[in-house]
Design a protein around this nucleic acid. Sequence first.
DNA 1: TTGTATGCGTTATCAG
DNA 2: CTGATAACGCATACAA
Lengths: 342, 342
Amino acid sequence: MKTIKDVAKAAGVSVATVSRVLNHEKQVSSKTREQVLRVIDEIGYTPNVLGRNLRVRATDRILVLLPSLSNQFYSSVLKGVEAVASAQGYQTMISVTHNDAEVERGYINLLYNRSVDGILLMSSSLPAQEITAIAAERPLVMCSEYNEGARLSTVGVNNFQAAFDAVSYLINAGHRRIAMISSEQTYSGRLRTQGYQAALKQAGLTFRPEYLINTQYSFRSGLEACEILLHLPEAPTAVFAISDVLAAGVMKRLQQAGQIPGRDVDVFGFDNISLADMLTPAVSTVSQPRLEIGKKATELLLGKIADIHSPDQAVVLPHQLVLRQTTRRVVSPAVFPAEKIG
Amino acid sequence: MKTIKDVAKAAGVSVATVSRVLNHEKQVSSKTREQVLRVIDEIGYTPNVLGRNLRVRATDRILVLLPSLSNQFYSSVLKGVEAVASAQGYQTMISVTHNDAEVERGYINLLYNRSVDGILLMSSSLPAQEITAIAAERPLVMCSEYNEGARLSTVGVNNFQAAFDAVSYLINAGHRRIAMISSEQTYSGRLRTQGYQAALKQAGLTFRPEYLINTQYSFRSGLEACEILLHLPEAPTAVFAISDVLAAGVMKRLQQAGQIPGRDVDVFGFDNISLADMLTPAVSTVSQPRLEIGKKATELLLGKIADIHSPDQAVVLPHQLVLRQTTRRVVSPAVFPAEKIG
DNA sequence: TTGTATGCGTTATCAG
DNA sequence: CTGATAACGCATACAA
């Protein structure tokens, strides 16, 4: 393995000069620069970035922590992350925690042993105070999910309002028996449940506990929840699920029961992942501005890397209702300004 | 930021001793060990792994390069990778190339600047000879995809045979007009096309060029390909697509045309991602042993890390036909031993 | 414009 | 069992 010293020797200059060429510093004559570059090319030298990292105390690398790779949702968020990261000269890496706190801590430790400059959390299994403590001393930002009570920069949508809007839409379309498939595992899930209840209340509908099913974020959970709903004495006429994958499970079960989503029972999902449009009929859903979430979160993260004491921000980006084939058209459009329905 | 020197000073020992404690070396008295550990805990010291990496010339980290995050297929492969990597003390990181050769080179460069110990390629946009050259000097292994002509360790299925089996199944089920949606962009795609043609030939069916559509791996491409097939003077009675996402596009278009997959037109996908089972009707598909692919590939990669001159291997793992609702039952089961159909 | 010398934080060699 | 010290590869303050 060649080192900067080999280059210096072969080029007949000092290592300092080679280093200057490598770092594009101006104060080096063009002839020595060319000479050095030629030698670098000749002997096939690649700088060992570990030496540099150790010296400059930075890796120019950020890490994105995902709970799993199987959620399509993160794909576009990541595009936003990469866009601003690479524009600032940072490389993006991803690791998967599988919702395992120990695994997550292992990756977060990379922040302390200087392997990465900052971490973007798309979800976390750690207690809020632990997150707060880490974020206080290292660049750590959360997006799309939020652990209640944690103090750090965050980016996401107004989950309460998003659910409120979706459910209000269903009510406005004439539904009176609306079920929700949610999850208490995440703060966003709890907020969406509150939005659901608030929408019912505002419309003067009474909340029926049997219409609220708390479960996991999975296709199977959607199937099972729908199974329960179908067997209720008075089955709901619409189902609002807090993820498109859950909604897919609902769709599947409905069709197994010979029902057609959008005709017999309306279905509303959340996330607007590609799956929602792949299913037949195409699923109405709540869309989050994923690209923007990724971009904004990365900006905040890079800000923290530049100055760990930059003030925390809680950025809320606008959501949209995407109406497709699993929901009736709304009856009184007045309630929803067209701009909002997108 | 505390260093090993701070620990040494506070514990009244040398840095060498601290280092020994850190690396769990046996030759250190238990009382000094405890003393050191106590100090480490007290002053809140975290080893700077960059110093260590520089010294030991290793990062204990491997990188997995994916073409995109939106392909569910990679999720389970990654589980296999993580399983064997973490068992050997390696951390796994992922980066996305978006099929951009320059981006890919940027990440592969991490191999040369010592930022990662090895790279697992799930796909590559680089010419075969470039891959060969890199793999000759650094730990680089490919899995699930293969660039024709490249010399390096690989893991995957027999794509020719897998396509041959799927198409033969359709033929055996009575189909005579079988279309294929493939792609010439990948070697696996080209092999699968050959398998398709070989199966037709073996059954004495003539290959019809209008039944072979070469396109991209995307939902939209599946839609469009199906659109073309539907308008053929003599439309096919079955469609074999080289990915489940393509098959999903086919399904969608069929249903838009009022046709029911599995009744009017049979559909066969490839990969067995969760999507295949989410759709209604559930899609028959070719399953690859993803977990095993990830495991085996990682074993080969770690072998290369241990010894770059360890011999290259081309591991072929068994595929399976997963029969669901979009294909008729086979007429003469004799042709396909039950074990194989899984 | 270029070179010298030092340190980044750690591990490993060699004495003791 | 422990300590002093020289690398590891690079960047940079200071000289020249």
